[in-house]
Design a binder for these strands. Structure first.
Length: 153
DNA sequence: GCCAACGTTGGC
DNA sequence: GCCAACGTTGGC
């Protein structure tokens, strides 16, 4: 299958592009929304690319790129009573939440802010603009390419 | 900190 | 299955 493109949101105070650059790879835990989970569990494939987005930031925007380096497996934090992502209804036999691993690709020379994305007609169909709350979302190749280009200029 | 949008829960 | 109540996200 052709490579797919995604957008992953993270609050930089929680986990930023700098954290990913330092770690090299990370597990994308803590997704607790069914639509987002289904995309990760059922659609994300090794080698897919993701725009790394800083939400709840000032300003919010896309700050870099990551690559999916492991396909979905159960998110261990759902079993951890001390975690804020603990889910009492999840069991090891029937886990409810999944995650993928992602690898650092690059940090943009500059952020492509949500404001700029909103101001760009070619990006007006992005899920980010139309259904802002989804924390894992599909991105079209043309949109991905456009944002990448904007980050270099 | 506010609040609109929207997702989830649970009673019926 | 409906829908009111409630909780969360995330821009501003």
């Amino acid at each position: 299958m052709a490579r797919q493109y995604w957008l992953l949101k993270s609050e930089p105070g929680d986990y930023s592009i700098d954290d990913l650059e330092k770690d090299g790879t990370t597990f994308w835990s803590g997704v607790r929304n069914y639509s987002a989970r289904n995309l990760m569990r059922d659609k994300m494939r090794l080698g897919d690319r993701a725009l790394f987005y800083h939400s709840n930031a000032d300003p919010p925007g896309v700050v870099g790129l990551a690559e999916v380096c492991r396909e979905s497996y159960p998110d261990h934090l759902q079993f951890d009573k001390k975690s804020k992502y603990f889910d009492p209804k999840a069991t090891k036999e029937t886990p409810r939440w999944f995650m993928v691993d992602v690898e650092f690709m690059e940090k943009f020379p500059r952020m492509v802010s949500l404001g700029e994305i909103r101001d760009t007609a070619a990006l007006s169909d992005m899920v980010l603009v139309n259904r802002s709350r989804l924390s894992v979302q599909p991105v079209r190749k043309a949109e991905y390419d456009r944002i990448l280009k904007m980050s270099k200029t």
